[in-house]
Structure formats: structure tokens, C-alpha cells
Design a protein around this nucleic acid. Structure first.
Length: 806
DNA sequence: GTTTAGGCTTAG
């Protein structure tokens, strides 16, 4: 039997699990979660007298601390509703961990806690305030009240004036049934304005004009027939009739007006009173309204299947996708599970501009109405998220012969196809209202949508799953509804795991498959991702800065002294034209291998002395290999670190300072060598070459967690570009930059980030303290979109003319 | 303790 305890000690066998550590693989046995109630939802009556209540708890006062949704069922939900208030601290045990379907919307924990099992338990602790510490009150409210209770015990009782007893120039509280309303809209002044007309058993209809600083402080009216309780409204006369206008301290509570439904107060007020009398008042008004056909006479809510061309109506629907058309118009793609008897107009928009799925199964497409929302409604529509349930008021069905934005002139305008327009303005209550997930109307709509998904949808996935696929990654490999921008090239045949599972894993070492989005990466300056790696000593260092390299070159050229060439070399000069018009030519000393010269391969390799870095680079256009040298004690020597030991076209090669022998420069052995390349030269010079590598740290995310991983050993495979090319080639650099931008658009929300299938390798590193740390690297994974850049073409410009000495 | 709006259709 689930139980709620007030103020009781948590049993010693239970241990606390921090909210941040909760995942779908959490074993909840003997664990408890503790937090402060930051939101308490209404008690919802579901089928067969069952109750559901959703609450949100947060570990600490700080907004930085994690928060999690808890869903309570049955009597526990009822007791919770009666005894717990926002601000109370609760402890929950005996929970099950589920995947939170609302994580994208509410940003709470990716999991939720379900309290339905027989061992489910809640411990409640009311905050100790001087007036509240002696606690008969707390136990009293847990046992006697049947609905939301006020936070204070000494609050004044409100009295309500019947609408035929209103006197001019007084501030009053009233109850009424809504017979007309305009949703809150920005007034020309500083407030949000809404207008309503209410009635009560007096049968008088009273106009109310409400001004509030915040939109949400207006009565949350979902339909005509709803019941409002207005506190602090003042009476005034306008055109010979009495009106109500919000007065200082105005507050409103709204109730569903349908007989038999739960009496759940809807309000933004943090604390409000609700007594038995209120419950009674609502029920009386409901009964009176029902017997006087207040709702049925005025409601214009119809399903899509009942729409008539040119008619105005209200539509209860789910938003599936949306796209901005222009500054005055937004497209909302909605459905209610019913089929309109008229062909629905298709509006063509750029796929990139669509939020939500771009297309649906053919069967579903036939049910989707395109709603064009104009002018003052655009701003509100822009904030809506696909998946949201809406009621659109005063929608008009327009035959498609009228012009439709988004169609270009070359596209045929379809005739007699229905489009739905929400015109600008607020006449006739025109506007959009978001319906909460737990409202009765949404529950009914949802079951209709689910029926469709079960019966007709050929895609094999239910509607909610479809939204899920768009919102969160599929959990298994075989679900390819959302294309990945990467592909795995490993040989593992293992299941995809969620990041939270991976992080919870006790023995993570080895390979894992994940489906993730890239939430951030570093370094942001991509040239810093390029490093030099020594395979001998495993050192990793930054690519030397040009300025530093330049200094080494000028140092060497300043100390240039003549030295006789080694026996295997011939000395000569090259003439390097001045860099700008009018600047003088430079003559540089070079050495060349006599063997190569005799073979006619003079351009394959030269040793250059006394040149600047810039001059060396310019010479590299004309010689395949250039080794910068200096004279040291009469012998040829390489330049000091960090000068490259070799220039090959636009590529530079560096040697490891600690692993290279400081030997005299010798002639490369070209016997049996087809091409003189960096390897041949490094060997001849006894240099341990450093390898260009790419190293980045990426933060991955999925619906459950984030994970920091390295992209290193397989970075070249990932980008399909060599690090060496990146070092030398602007195009390759741009390719990486474009790729990262596509995977993680600047300022883009996660909906714009593509999903990535990845293989990760977890390995252990040992820090100074000797404690192992688990690191992750992306392995055997390659980008399949965007396309790789064209491969580098070897620079082929003609070099300066050498003046060879014979 | 101001003003706003004070229902009553866009004109795509």
C-alpha cells in the first residue's frame, strides 16, 4: 500500500541517491530521492476513479541544482494533493524510473520518477516558520481538506457579489460563467489586456476588462463555459451599463465549466485560497449553466471533419510542425485525428525552415491542416513547440484559390483546396491558446490521435513515438527514422546505449555505440586543434607559431658563416626576385647533392642557407624538398627547434627535439628510392619526425546525459581529411570548420543539431595520484554529410630560376 | 495606483 508520511523519519535502510545520478538503469531498491517541491500540479482524475498528480522537486534552493518530475498515482496522488505544498521538502522511495517525455519542454531531468507500486512512499516535511511550527494545522489539512488549501491560516474569507448586486464605484469579488472572451493580447498601453463577458444565476451578462502586467496572470480560459473567480475587480459605468475592470491586486482563478469534471483551479497565483465553499460555487454554476445551455449555444469548436469552406470555427488540435513564412505569417501544421471532407491545401516551404518533422506518412499527411497565422498572432505562434496541444479560436477555412504565401509564382495555385487562416486582430476572440497536457480536452484528443496511429498509420510508429523520434534519439540501431550525419565503420555488433547508461556503467572500458548530438566542442579556434605528435616519446605539442619559427631563421641567417660544402654536395646560388615591385632581388646560398644533379634531379632537393622563413616558403614552389641549414663549426647543421627540418610544397615537417640525433647533415641515400619524401629525408638526417594530428574535445548529448569525449586517433577518418593537409591547406581547414558548424550551429538550439551515430572507446588513464580516470574517444566513425572537400592538388607553380654552379 | 479597452471578423 503506497503511503504518505508527514514529518516522519526516513527509515535507516534507505540511502539517498542524488537526482543527477538517476538514470533508467537506476536500481531504486532501498534508495530515496529528496528535494523541495518547486511545482505541484493539479490532481487529475483519470479513468476508474484513479488519480494522477505530477510534481517537480529540486535538490536544493539553487536553480543550478537538478530538478526531476515525479508522477504519483492513485491514493498517493490524492494524499499528496491534500498534504503537500510548494516549498515543502519531500522524500520519495519505492519509485520506478521512466523516461521523461517532457524533458525538451521543461528542461528537468531526462528521467521521471513514477510512484505507483505498492512500496511507493512519500515523506513530507513542511518548512518551519514561526507561525507554522506548532503543527496541528499541518495534520489537519492532511486529513480534512479535499482540494488545494491556502498557505496561510489567517487569510480573510472572501465574499462574492452576485452580478445583479453590483454597485457603481466599488471593488468586489465575483464568480461567473464565461460567455465570451478575448485571449490576453498586448494593449497599446503597458499591460496585457483581456476582455470577457460573464454571467451567473442572475442571467445578467457583465463585461469585464482586465489588465495585467503578465500574460499568465489573466484567467486561463480554454473555452466558453469555463468558470472564473475574479478577486478585486471594480465596477464602472460605460455606455449606460455596469462593467468590471481589474483593480489593484487583481487575481483570477479559472475552472472547467463542465459538470462532473474535477474541480481543478487554474491560476498563476502562488498562493490562493480554495475552500469547500469554492467547490460548491463552481458546481452550482456548472449545473446552472448546463441547464441554461450557456455553452452549447455559444461554442463553435468543431473537428476538422466538420469544417465548411468560408466558415469560422474553433479547433482543438496538436501542433506537429511549423515554419515561418514571412514577418507577418507563420505556418502551423496541425491535426486532430479527423479527416476534413475537403482536400487540404499543401503549402510549400523550405525544408530547412521547418521546425518539427518535414514530412509524415501519406495517411497522416491527409489529416494535416495547414494553418496560416497572421500579424499579431505570429509572435505567439513562433514560441510554440511541435507536440503542443492548442485551441485555435476563430479560424477560417479558406478555399485555396486565394493566394498562399510560400507558393512561388511558378507553382500552380490549387483550386478548391482548403487552407486555414487565423487572421490578424482579436475580433471574435481570435487567437491561440495552449492547452495543458492534463486537461480533459487534451486527454480526449490524445486518445483520438492514438486511435489513428494504431488503425491507419502505415509507418508502424505511434504518434507520440513519432514526436519522440523527432525530439529524442531512437534507442536502438535499427530505428533509422532520423538520419545520422555520421556512420560507424567498426566491426562491433553491439546495441546503442544512452549516455546515462554509459556513465552509470561499472566497467565501461571497451567499445560503445551511442546516438548523440554535439552540444559543444573545443578548441573553438580550429587551428589550435592541430598538434604535433611524436610516436617515439608520445609527446604532443602545439604547432610552432610562425613568429617563433621566423626568429630561428633570422638568428641562423645572422650567424651565417661560409662553410665549405661537404664532399657529396655542390654549392650554388639562387636568385629570388624581390617580393614587391622595386624591391631588390635576393641571392641565396644553396647546396645540392651532386648525385642528384648528375641524374638531372636538381629540383628534387636543395639545402638552403641564410634565408628567411618567408623566402624559404617562396622557394618551396620551385623545389620539391627544401632543407634549411646553417653552418655550425664549419659543418652543415639543421636549424634549431622549432624550425621545420623540411619544406615540401606548402607542407612543413618538424622533428622531435628530444628524440632526434643532432648529427651532421648528410646526403640522403637515394638508391632504390623512387620519390624523395619526408621519410627518406628524416632517416638521412636522423630526425624523429613529428606527426600532424587533430585533437578536439567534444561534448556529446542525448536525452539522458552529456559526455565529454576526445576526437584524436580517428579524427582524420572522422573528417575524411588528413591532418597534414589541414596544416597546409586552407580548403581542408575550411572543411573542418564547415563540418563543425554543421554539427553544432552557432547559436542554434539542439533541434538544429543533427544526430550522430558513433562508436566510442573507453580507456583508462592514470593521473599523477595513480587513480585511473575513464576517458572516451570517438573511433571508427566518419562524417557522411557534409561532403568531404576535394583532395589537395600539389602546388605546381613555377619557381624562381636557379643559377646552378657547375 | 496613469494608460490600455470598452467583443462584432482579413481582405493575406
Amino acid at each position: 500500500m503506497p503511503v504518505l508520511f508527514e514529518g516522519a523519519q526516513v527509515p535507516a535502510h534507505l540511502t539517498n541517491i542524488p537526482i543527477s545520478l538517476i538514470s533508467t538503469s537506476t536500481d531504486s531498491a532501498n534508495k530515496y530521492v529528496k528535494g523541495k517541491v518547486i511545482h505541484k500540479g493539479p490532481l487529475v482524475v483519470s479513468a476508474a476513479d484513479n488519480f494522477i498528480l505530477k510534481t517537480v522537486i529540486q535538490e536544493d534552493d539553487s536553480s543550478q541544482k537538478p530538478s526531476i518530475n515525479i508522477v504519483l498515482f492513485g491514493d498517493l496522488a490524492k494524499s499528496f494533493s491534500q498534504s503537500v505544498n510548494q516549498g515543502d521538502v519531500v522524500v520519495a522511495s519505492g519509485f520506478q524510473v521512466g523516461k521523461s517525455p517532457t524533458v525538451r519542454k521543461d528542461n528537468h531531468h531526462a528521467c521521471n520518477l513514477l510512484l505507483s507500486k505498492s512500496d511507493a512512499c512519500i515523506y513530507v516535511y513542511h518548512p518551519q516558520s514561526p507561525s507554522d511550527s506548532k503543527s496541528p494545522q499541518a495534520s489537519k489539512r492532511s486529513s480534512t481538506c479535499s482540494a488545494e488549501v491556502s498557505q496561510t491560516t489567517k487569510a480573510p474569507k472572501y465574499t462574492y457579489v452576485r452580478l445583479d448586486n453590483l454597485k457603481l464605484s466599488s471593488t468586489v469579488n465575483v464568480y461567473g460563467v464565461v460567455v465570451f472572451f478575448k485571449l490576453p493580447h498586448k494593449s497599446r498601453g503597458t499591460h496585457w489586456c483581456s476582455t470577457l463577458k460573464i454571467t451567473d444565476q442572475s442571467n445578467l451578462k457583465i463585461q469585464c476588462t482586465l489588465f495585467c502586467n503578465k500574460r499568465e496572470d489573466h484567467p486561463q480560459i480554454f473555452q466558453v463555459g469555463d468558470i472564473v473567480r475574479l478577486h478585486r475587480v471594480k465596477t464602472q459605468s460605460y455606455e449606460e451599463s455596469i462593467q468590471l475592470i481589474s483593480a489593484y491586486g487583481f487575481a483570477a482563478v479559472t475552472f472547467d465549466g463542465i459538470v462532473g469534471r474535477a474541480v481543478e483551479p487554474r491560476t498563476s497565483s502562488r498562493s490562493f485560497q480554495f475552500h469547500q465553499e469554492d467547490q460548491q460555487k463552481v458546481e452550482e454554476l456548472r449545473a446552472w449553466a448546463a441547464s441554461h445551455s450557456i455553452v452549447s449555444a455559444t461554442s463553435t469548436t468543431i473537428p476538422l471533419s466538420a469544417t465548411q469552406p468560408k466558415a469560422y470555427f474553433d479547433l482543438t488540435c496538436q501542433l506537429l510542425a511549423k515554419a515561418p513564412i514571412d514577418t507577418t505569417c507563420t505556418l502551423l501544421r496541425v491535426w486532430d485525428g479527423s479527416q476534413c471532407p475537403h482536400t487540404l491545401l499543401k503549402v510549400i516551404v523550405e525544408p530547412d525552415s521547418v521546425e518539427g518533422p518535414v514530412s509524415f506518412s501519406e495517411n497522416k499527411e491527409n489529416l494535416i491542416a495547414n494553418v496560416l497565422v497572421y500579424d499579431n498572432h505570429v509572435e505567439f505562434a513562433r514560441q510554440l513547440k511541435p507536440g503542443t496541444f492548442l485551441r485555435i479560436f476563430n479560424l477560417r477555412a479558406i478555399p485555396g484559390s486565394s493566394r498562399v504565401p510560400g507558393l512561388t509564382s511558378s507553382q500552380a495555385v490549387e483550386h478548391d483546396h482548403l487552407a486555414f487562416h487565423l487572421h490578424g486582430g482579436t475580433s471574435y476572440g481570435r487567437g491561440i491558446q495552449v492547452l495543458p497536457e492534463n486537461s480533459q480536452d487534451v486527454q480526449e484528443l490524445k486518445s483520438a490521435l492514438e486511435m489513428f496511429s494504431k488503425d491507419k498509420d502505415d509507418s508502424g510508429v505511434s504518434d507520440s513515438e513519432l514526436m519522440d523520434i523527432w525530439c529524442t534519439p531512437p534507442e536502438t540501431l535499427d530505428d533509422e527514422a532520423v538520419e545520422s550525419c555520421t556512420e560507424r565503420r567498426c566491426i562491433h555488433n553491439i546495441e546503442t546505449v544512452m549516455l546515462s547508461q554509459l556513465k552509470q556503467c561499472n566497467d565501461p572500458l571497451g567499445s560503445h555505440h551511442v546516438r548523440v548530438q554535439l552540444s559543444s566542442f573545443k578548441p573553438h579556434r580550429l587551428h589550435q586543434a592541430l598538434k604535433l605528435y611524436c610516436s617515439k616519446c608520445s609527446s604532443l605539442q602545439d604547432v610552432p607559431d610562425d613568429e617563433v619559427v621566423n626568429r630561428v631563421f633570422s638568428e641562423a641567417s645572422r650567424n651565417a658563416e661560409l662553410c665549405s660544402p661537404p664532399s657529396w654536395a655542390l654549392s650554388g646560388k639562387v636568385n629570388l626576385p624581390g617580393i614587391s615591385h622595386g624591391s631588390s632581388n635576393r641571392t641565396l646560398h644553396i647546396h645540392s647533392s651532386s648525385e642528384l644533379l648528375s641524374e638531372g634531379k636538381a629540383k628534387e632537393l636543395i639545402y638552403i642557407m641564410g634565408s628567411s622563413l618567408e623566402e624559404t616558403c617562396r622557394l618551396a614552389d620551385g623545389y620539391q624538398n627544401i632543407i634549411p641549414v646553417r653552418s655550425s663549426e664549419g659543418r652543415l647543421a639543421l636549424l634549431d627547434w622549432p624550425a621545420p627540418f623540411l619544406f615540401r610544397g606548402r607542407k612543413r615537417y618538424y622533428g622531435c627535439k628530444s628524440c632526434s640525433e643532432a648529427a651532421a647533415v648528410s646526403e640522403p641515400s637515394c638508391e632504390g628510392v623512387d620519390v624523395i619524401d619526408e621519410k627518406v629525408i628524416a632517416e638521412a638526417l636522423q630526425v624523429q619526425p613529428l606527426q600532424f594530428v587533430l585533437l578536439m574535445e567534444l561534448q556529446l548529448q542525448d536525452a539522458t546525459d552529456t559526455l565529454d569525449v576526445f576526437l584524436w586517433k580517428h579524427a582524420e577518418m572522422f573528417f575524411n581529411v588528413s591532418a597534414e593537409d589541414v596544416a597546409a591547406n586552407q580548403e581542408a581547414q575550411d572543411h573542418i570548420s564547415r563540418t563543425m558548424n554543421a554539427l553544432c550551429p552557432k547559436g542554434g538550439s539542439d533541434v538544429h543539431r543533427p544526430w550522430l551515430d558513433m562508436c566510442l572507446t573507453a580507456y583508462s588513464t592514470v593521473c599523477d595520484g595513480g587513480r585511473g580516470q575513464t576517458c572516451y574517444q570517438i573511433c571508427d566513425t566518419g562524417i557522411i554529410k557534409p561532403r568531404p572537400p576535394p583532395s589537395e592538388s600539389y602546388p605546381s607553380g613555377s619557381g624562381p630560376t636557379p643559377h646552378e654552379a657547375a
